[in-house]
């Protein structure tokens, strides 16, 4: 029961964070704040991933064998207490991708500020549209 409440609490926190971050990406006017909201969303999703791979036992251990010359006992202790490594690996990949996208967006934001002289998304939109008609 306690663990169930804990799980509920963690998911609730993460999803509310994610929802607020999505709102931030959509509704914030500052282009830098949009990027920050995107990174928050990435992080919330990554935390969900880590949590999916968690193991509800008293002492879960990182998925690393504690020695390179294991015997049967160490091996069976390892497979019975290690958390799921796959979501962690997926998260590492996703983190790198997130870093790449954020880096590109940051460069783009600097360029945008340089060319438009403002960081307001609506203002930039207005300037672009105004140039067209």
């Amino acid at each position: 029961m306690l663990s169930w409440i804990l799980v509920l609490y963690v998911y609730l926190t993460l999803f509310v964070t994610g929802g607020i971050a999505v709102y931030g990406v959509v509704a914030k006017r500052n282009i830098v704040k949009k990027i920050i909201a995107l990174t928050i969303f990435n992080d919330a999703v990554n935390t969900v991933a880590i949590f999916i791979g968690y193991r509800l036992i008293p002492r879960p251990l990182p998925p690393i064998m504690p020695t390179i010359h294991p015997n049967r006992q160490i091996y069976s202790a390892f497979i019975s207490s290690s958390v799921d490594p796959l979501p962690q690996a997926l998260v590492i990949t996703a983190i790198v991708i997130g870093v790449a996208v954020t880096c590109f967006l940051a460069f783009l934001a600097i360029r945008l500020y340089d060319r438009f002289g403002t960081t307001d998304y609506q203002e930039i939109k207005r300037l672009v549209r105004g140039g067209k008609r």
């Binding site: 663990s3 799980v7 949590f51 999916i52 791979g53 968690y54 193991r55 509800l56 036992i57 998925p63 064998m65 390179i68 010359h69 294991p70 049967r72 091996y75 390892f78 497979i79 290690s82 958390v83 799921d84 490594p85 796959l86 979501p87």
Partner: peptide, 23 residues
């Protein structure tokens, strides 16, 4: 197996079992 449980499902357990299975 969506929410954390006492055991791992699917591929995860296979990988944990085999990644350094010297036997």
């Amino acid at each position: 197996g969506g929410h954390p449980s006492a055991s791992i499902v699917g591929i995860g357990q296979f990988i944990v079992n085999n990644t350094y299975n010297v036997f």
